[in-house]
Simulated scan of single mutants.
Amino acid sequence: MLRFFFWIFLILNALLLALNFGFLGNWSSDVREPLRMKYEKNADKIKLMNANAAQDSIEAHTKKMTPVLACLELSGFSVADSKSFDEKIKSLALAERLTRTELAEVASNMVYLPSLGSKDAAEKKAAQIRKLGVTEFYVVQDQTPLRWGISLGVFKTPEAAKAHLANLVKKGLKEAKLAPRTVTAAKINYRLENLSEEEKQILDQIKSGFSQTQSQECKNSSE
């Protein structure tokens, strides 16, 4: 029994001596160190990939949640039409996002009805025109051959005047004519900024009721 314990004690001392001199330690570290480095390297890669994926996800989500805003310029409203337009867009609460500009515009292409001979006849015709859905016109009362006729619009270009004339003829005003007549009229322009997609759709619907106006994206948007 004593001999058995002697050999156990001797073997243990031999192992401790080998560890102290590095015979086993070098081998162990040679095996473990590359594995540790490999895992640490892979762990860094995994963390980096996760960070990039997270950033991409955040950016995609932010882009999705950010509303697409629009800026529109509407031009060519008469004073009467601009008042009607102002009433229709009140519900949008545009406030400081809306800029309204009044300009004096010289036009020389007139669409009109010839003189009806008297004020009563002109007013009766005016009532018929309203029933056709035409709202932008006025009875001429100045001392000219056109007195008691009806102006249906004055335009800067012949093309615009002809297009309006064709539209009126389709509605039933077959007696409407086109003639040169220089008139200075007030025109109202609008600039509407930071519009949501829903607001833009509503404005497009409202604008469709004003056939003589033009719409375009803002040239110099302040968004």
Rank of each mutant, 00 (worst) to 15 (best):
L92I: 00
S151L: 04
L19V: 02
Q201V: 10
D30Y: 09
E223Y: 13
V140C: 07
G25I: 13
Q216K: 15
S221L: 08
N20T: 07
L98F: 02
N52F: 13
I129L: 00
L116M: 03
L94G: 03
S28C: 12
L92W: 01
L19H: 04
A122M: 02
T144F: 01
A185I: 08
L178T: 00
S91G: 05
S82R: 01
C71G: 05
L48V: 07
W7L: 08
K47F: 11
N42Q: 14
N194P: 04
F210M: 07
R3P: 09
L168C: 03
F21Y: 11
K131A: 13
M1T: 11
L72V: 11
E40L: 14
Y39A: 13
K187Y: 08
D86M: 07
R147E: 09
L94Y: 00
I8L: 15
G153E: 10
V134N: 02
E33G: 04
A43R: 12
Q143I: 06
A93P: 04
E136C: 07
G25C: 09
N52R: 10
I129G: 00
I129K: 01
L24E: 03
Y190G: 04
S208H: 04
L2M: 13
F137Y: 07
W27F: 11
A60W: 06
F6L: 14
Y138K: 14
R97D: 06
S215A: 15
L35A: 12
N167G: 11
I129H: 00
A60S: 14
E73C: 07
S78E: 02
I58D: 10
Y112N: 08
E223D: 11
E199R: 06
G209R: 06
N109M: 03
V154E: 06
N13M: 11
P114G: 13
K187C: 04
E217Y: 07
E193L: 05
A70K: 11
E217H: 09
K207C: 10
S151Q: 03
C71F: 05
L72E: 13
E105G: 03
I89L: 09
R147T: 04
W7P: 02
F21C: 14
P34C: 05
L24Y: 05
D81F: 05
L12M: 10
Q128M: 08
A53T: 10
K200Y: 08
F137S: 01
T213Q: 04
